[in-house]
Design a protein around this nucleic acid. Structure first.
Lengths: 199, 199
DNA sequence: ATGACCATGTAAGCAGTTACATGATTAC
DNA sequence: GTAATCATGTAACTGCTTACATGGTCAT
């Protein structure tokens, strides 16, 4: 159900077409929810059917006609209500942990290779999250600028701080995973008989 | 695709029926992958069709007939291969972060309520993961005992250490989320006009 | 004219959720 | 007898993935 609310959330900053929305959700981006374009378009249709967003055909900067969606009052109410309601914890699924649970059963060098690939991924993610955090803190992202434009100046600092802190949280989790993987690299190497020197 | 490998992983310790396997995957358990029973049963059927596990009708301790699955050589090979292969990072989806991104737009007391519920969940999870970590480190879980029984004694310490470390990693991530949520609680309260003293 | 990007979708299939159906055993 | 646990499934549905289809604009 969260894709719907994530879409409402982006639209609460400004009206947007499906393609632009999809950029926020493209896999391997520095965003907290990912989804392919096909899913965005059908979710938008269903949100429109439910009256949570309104569609209007407008021309983009090229005279090209696109479908622009904006949050309806009902959509804003639904978003606010959802954000204000504690959600039950979502089921836990950590594919990498499943893999790691069996590192004892394979060649330690293979385990090290898997761990190093994981470390690369996590370090890349960390960099993206830190950079997004900094961009929000300095209010330099286009979406945040548009959002702040409709809020009193006195609230700007608080809003930017809270939003930046969400990505600080993502970064903190990435740091925990990185620290863990570094320890794991030492552990998988620990029990290995030393290779015969070949060079 | 990971449920299949998670099932192969559990079966690599010992043969088991679907109901027992499902206990490892029940939501809100201290396990790294969750799935409902219905999904376990159909996944087992498909694994059997693919020749990765073998089924045999055996009688349980009550003379009651159950279907016991065991890992086939092909299943063991598939598991080892999957564990040894770096997987592409799975798409990121953090529903709570979507919620947190909009804490600036709602009543700070509602945001605090949501954060406290999250903190409760994470602290409960942390306790479960720490206890599972300790149980593995002291080799007191039934499954680990059976697993160690088929491995040379000299490897026992390394195996237990590596498995315990996976849950240490889960605990580290929970700690990061808890630390983040505690900071967030301070931040949401920060910009609030002080309530009139009422007691 | 070729490739990159803008823009909107459909279709098929797999993964995951929720509810239902059935029946035996064990503990109180 | 009644509730909890053991045990195996089916059915309907929603969410997510992957591939395909179409056509316009912009820069080289």
């Amino acid at each position: 159900m969260s894709l719907r609310h994530a879409l409402l959330g982006v639209l609460s900053a400004r009206p947007m077409n499906g393609y632009s929305l999809a950029r926020f959700f493209l896999a391997s981006q520095n965003w907290v929810w990912s989804a392919p374009r096909s899913q965005i378009y059908s979710a938008l249709k269903s949100l429109e059917d439910d009256g949570l967003i309104d569609a209007s055909r407008e021309e983009g900067r090229n005279g090209l006609v696109t479908k622009v969606y904006s949050l309806s009052p009902a959509g804003q109410a639904e978003l606010d209500h959802w954000v204000s309601t504690p959600q039950p914890p979502s089921p836990h699924r950590d594919a990498f942990a499943v893999q790691a649970l069996h590192f004892d059963a394979i060649d330690p060098e293979d385990a090290a290779t898997v761990l190093r690939a994981y470390l690369d991924d996590q370090r890349r993610q960390l960099a993206e999250w830190e950079s997004h955090r900094d961009a929000l803190a300095s209010r330099s992202t286009p979406l945040l600028k548009e959002r702040l434009a409709s809020r009193p100046a006195g609230e700007h600092e608080r809003i930017a701080t809270l939003k930046a802190h969400v990505f600080e949280g993502q970064a903190m989790q990435a740091l925990a995973r990185i620290a863990w993987a570094e320890q794991a690299l030492e552990l998988v190497a620990a029990g290995v008989s030393v290779a015969t020197p070949t060079g």
